[in-house]
């Protein structure tokens, strides 16, 4: 495979807790690749650091250490106008489109401003480009004089995407782009991302907690827990043969459309809360909630490659299958509740 478009190497973003002075390790050594024209999913529970990772990639948070390589350049080391020009090629889509548009600007003005920032000085050229961008996101051109509050959620999110496209990006980092939208609108927006990939070769990092949405769009998926990547693989590998106990638990919570399968679905309920990112467990991050944790898990788990693309960070990668384990067959039955 050729060199990835965007590659993130051992990226760490820590926050300082103002009261205790301890480090909150929101994103703690993440390595991730995005190829040109590829939609990559990033899934995990709330608070696992997936949004922090996205915000660090676009420069909204300051990385503690690690590398962000974009088209062969080290983005974190770039300064000044050159850095700004490179960073601009990675754009961000927020969860809530209403608050990510200024209430004082019409959407035409908002996109126009993005074009001005991108260095387009000619007014009539900008006007033509606004029409093009609105068309690219399937919005009628007469909406340019509307204010964000006068539009629907789906329309607003399209405007946000159009504005991001104004910077002529190569990668879109989308942080829960559809979770604030009506279910009926979600598919439309997801199809828009697919269309952008097919028409413009747009790469996407799709951050979501909704596994079904990610499965619909992403070619490859990363699973994150407590600031670390647990498992990565193609959609087919990850959804078909999850190798990490955490991925298995996560997937077991997704309802199935086939009623026969749905009746047979066993939910793996993890007990306890996600540990504090200020003081994560040693070794495997998941071991405090893992139903099959062993003493070995106190040591740092190796990256077990199950195929060229499928990697699980677990001592027992691929050996355990939580879904097939009966509750009473477990050595520690209080840790797992299997519902029939």
């Amino acid at each position: 495979m050729s060199k990835p478009l965007l590659s993130i190497v051992d990226l760490k973003t820590h926050f300082r807790d103002s009261r205790t002075g301890a480090d909150i390790r929101a994103c703690d050594g993440v390595t991730l690749d995005i190829n040109a024209g590829e939609i990559v999913g990033l899934v995990g529970e709330s608070g696992c650091g997936k949004s922090t990772l996205g915000r660090t990639i676009v420069g909204l948070e300051r990385a503690r250490s690690g590398q962000i390589r974009f088209r062969g350049e080290e983005v974190l080391a770039l300064r000044g106008s050159r850095g700004a020009a490179t960073r601009r090629k990675i754009q961000y889509i927020f969860q809530d489109p209403l608050s990510s548009l200024s209430p004082r600007q019409t959407i035409g003005e908002a996109i126009d401003e993005a074009l001005v920032i991108n260095g387009e000085g000619n007014r009539s050229a900008r006007r033509a480009r606004i029409a093009e961008l609105l068309e690219a996101v399937s919005l009628p051109a007469q909406l340019t004089d509307r204010y964000p509050r006068e539009m629907s959620g789906g329309q607003r999110q399209r405007v946000c995407i159009a504005r991001a496209l104004a910077a002529d990006p190569d990668v879109l980092v989308c942080d829960e782009p559809v979770s604030s939208l009506d279910v009926s609108i979600r598919a439309q927006i997801m199809n828009l991302f697919l269309k952008l990939r097919d028409d413009l070769g747009m790469a996407c990092l799709l951050i979501a907690h909704d596994l079904a949405i990610v499965r619909l769009a992403a070619q490859r998926v990363y699973v994150m827990y407590l600031g670390k990547i647990m498992e990565q693989g193609t959609s087919a590998e990850l959804y078909g043969h999850p190798a990490h106990p955490y991925t298995q638990a996560l997937l077991s919570a997704v309802p199935l459309t086939n009623p026969v399968q749905e009746l047979a679905r066993r939910r793996i309920l993890l007990s306890g809360d996600v540990p504090s990112p200020m003081n994560p467990p040693s070794g495997c991050r998941f071991r405090s909630r893992c139903p099959v944790a062993q003493p070995l898990c106190e040591t740092f788990p190796p990256a077990a490659a199950l195929s060229a693309s499928h990697v699980a960070h677990c001592h027992f990668a691929g050996e355990c299958d939580l879904a097939s384990i009966k509750a009473n067959a477990f050595s520690a039955p209080h840790l797992v509740h299997v519902q029939g």
């Binding site: 909204l60 754009q91 927020f94 608050s99 990510s100 993005a114 504005r163 910077a167």
Partner: peptide, 12 residues
Amino acid sequence: QPYIESLRVLGA
């Protein structure tokens, strides 16, 4: 607010 953050990402 995200709208100021998105301006920063746009390079304003």
